[in-house]
Amino acid sequence: MSLLKVNNLKKYFKEVKAVNGITFDVKKGEVFGLLGPNGAGKSTTISMISTLFNPTSGEITYNGESIVEKPKAIQQKLGVVPQEIALYPTLSGLENLKFWGHAYGLRGSELNKRIEDISQVIGIKDRLKDKIEKYSGGMKRRINIGAALLHKPDLLIMDEPTVGIDPQSRNHILDTVLKLNEEGMTIIYTSHYMEEVEYLCSRISIMDMGEIIASGTQEELVDIIKGQKKINIKLDHVDDTLISIIKTIEYVEKVETHENEMILTTQNGENIFKDLISKTAETESNILSIDIKKPNLEAVFLHLTGKALRD
């Protein structure tokens, strides 16, 4: 059952088509991923869903009700974790949580109980009385998430919540997302980190240049490049002779070089090893290592756009 539906959504800023006719739906209880590089239009999409600004055209419905016409229909059921830290740095974590709890209408013992629960979830209970400006980047991110959870939202939108933080905090945040989802919360997770989306999301839409270029489960997306494999070969040196010879091998579709490394795009890559080794032996180059990469979302994105996610 779809909780949120986005239909032919557009947002233009003068000449810039930030979002250009995207359509997707988010099912109740899932973690839905929006994957794309910086500038793909993910945050603009999130801002429209969050009721922050109106679309140029298109429709967004929450439980069947248009949020453009009735923003209140979603505001109290929505939690938004912005990419940037949206907190008051000179106030303590506790004061921030209290303010945002009040903003969502929580009061007294109910609010205190929620703050206690949330501080447990985000793992920051011991530092709640410290000022936000004294926190590390990871701790600020956790409070940033906590502030969006106080009112027990049905739908949580997380916009690149792990940008610029240490691995430990990142892992904690990813685990928190899974835990919240297990408890029944529907989550929209945007990121340009392919691994995070792969780890968390059951369904994914890949965005680029304001458009959704592919959607589906992880398996469905990988199927787009079914059979295609990437082989990284490290050599003692790479020259034009070697490249010309490798290109003659059957199933090799593309050869890229980077210093003493060759990246081959192949179909049925397992079958080329014999030829690869024998052909290389004919040249003056020696193979140091071979690494076969399985198809992933990065590869899908590369396949669809011709550029890497982090370009």
Binding site: P71, Q75, P82, A103, Y104
Partner: peptide, 12 residues
């Protein structure tokens, strides 16, 4: 500080 946007999202 983006808190303005956050308040707007909270329905204020």
């Amino acid at each position: 500080n983006l808190t303005y946007a956050r308040m707007t999202v909270a329905g204020i």
